[in-house]
Computed example of a mutant assay.
Amino acid sequence: MLEIRDLSLSLGEFSLDGVDLTVADAEYFIILGPTGAGKTILLETLAGIYTPKTGTITLDGRNITRTDPRDRGIGMVYQDYMLFPHLTVGENVGFGLRQRGDDPARIRETVRKTADLLGIGRLLERTPGTLSGGEQQRAAIARALVLRPRVLLLDEPLSALDAVTRDRLRKELKAVHRTTKTTVVHITHHFEDIFALADRVAVMQGGRIVQTGTPDEVFRKPATEFVAAFTGMENVYRGVSRVRDGEAAIDLGAITVRTVTAVEGDVCVGVRPEEVIVSREPFESSATNVFSGTVTEVQQNGMFSKVVVDAGRPFVAVLTRQSIARLGLAEGEPAYVTFKASAVHVFAR
Rank of each mutant, 00 (worst) to 15 (best):
Q137F: 08
G119E: 13
L147F: 06
R168V: 02
Q136W: 01
L153H: 13
T127K: 15
L154H: 06
H186M: 14
P128Q: 04
R148Q: 09
D167V: 04
R150A: 13
R166N: 00
T127N: 12
D199R: 06
T182L: 04
R138P: 14
I120S: 06
P128C: 04
V185K: 01
L197P: 02
R168Y: 03
T179F: 08
G133C: 10
H177V: 05
R200M: 00
H186L: 12
R138E: 14
K171P: 00
I120Q: 08
P128H: 03
R178H: 09
F191I: 13
R126M: 04
H186V: 10
L173K: 07
T179R: 13
T130D: 15
T180E: 15
G133L: 08
L131I: 02
L153W: 13
A175L: 02
A140W: 05
R170C: 04
D199C: 06
H186C: 14
G134K: 03
L161R: 09
A144D: 08
G133S: 13
V146N: 14
V151N: 01
T165H: 05
H190P: 03
T183V: 07
T180A: 11
K181V: 06
A142S: 15
G129M: 10
L131H: 05
A140K: 09
I120F: 07
E172Y: 04
H177R: 08
K174V: 03
L123N: 02
G119D: 11
G119Y: 10
L169G: 03
I194C: 11
A144N: 07
V185Y: 01
P157A: 02
D199A: 08
H177F: 04
A163G: 02
K171E: 15
S132G: 11
T182I: 09
R168K: 08
A139I: 05
V164H: 12
P128A: 06
Q137K: 09
